[in-house]
């Protein structure tokens, strides 16, 4: 038989447990070492600032993802606020990473929805809608419906229609109808809103 017993816990090569005690450097050429340095950042006095600063400098995805995970694990309002600021960054990978990290800290993320609704940048409002869509609750449904009632940007409304369709909330039907009437020259938006209304009625 070609199968061998490995004795996993004892015999498997063990570089990480040894390296776990040695400090790693953010300046290393090796992304795996920079990643380990990121994971050690949480021991520093001000880890949120360090991690957010690193995210703006670092371009290796595997290192960035570790920073996003550590920020989500910290779960503080400061971390959430810093991640929310990245939603308007020019780098789409940073924006997406920030959104995913925020979704992994639902309590803090929900607290950000209200201010994000007032952000001047429609792209940020779209991210906020996507975030709300990943945090299903009555509270986020209320927020989506309230934003849809006043939103003036067609692209944001398109995302709102899709998200609201998933809430099953019948009190959203007039708001969706109002979107159709607000954008009479946007047939795709009428389609999105009608699809959402159908989902709610059939749900």
């Amino acid at each position: 038989m070609a199968l061998l017993k490995a004795k996993a816990a004892e015999n498997v090569a063990n570089p990480a447990s040894q390296s776990g005690v040695s400090p790693a450097s953010l300046d290393s050429d090796d992304p795996m070492e920079r990643r380990r340095a990121v994971q050690q950042c949480v021991e520093e006095p001000n880890p949120v600032a360090a991690l957010l600063g690193l995210l703006r400098e670092e371009h290796e995805n595997i290192v960035r993802q570790a920073a996003f995970t550590e920020l989500a694990a910290l779960g503080t309002s400061e971390a959430a606020q810093g991640l929310a600021e990245l939603l308007s960054n020019a780098d789409p990978a940073l924006r997406n990473g920030a959104l995913e990290a925020l979704v992994a800290m639902p309590e803090q993320a929900m607290g950000l929805l209200a201010p994000l609704a007032f952000c001047d940048d429609p792209d940020v409002r779209i991210f906020a809608v996507m975030m709300a869509n990943e945090l299903p609750s009555e509270r986020t449904a209320d927020w989506l419906i309230a934003l849809a009632a006043k939103e003036q940007d067609a692209n944001v409304c398109s995302n709102l229609a899709e998200a609201i369709g998933g809430t099953g909330r019948r009190d959203a039907l007039p708001v969706l109808q109002a979107i159709i009437e607000r954008f009479p020259r946007e047939p795709y938006l009428a389609f999105a809103a009608e699809t959402a209304m159908t989902r709610i009625r059939e749900g």
Partner: peptide
């Protein structure tokens, strides 16, 4: 087959798996 107790969320235990 080598059986062992591991919690995939435990960094110390996971550091043994390489």
């Amino acid at each position: 087959v080598d059986f062992s107790l591991v919690n995939v969320c435990n960094p110390t235990q996971m550091a043994r798996m390489r």
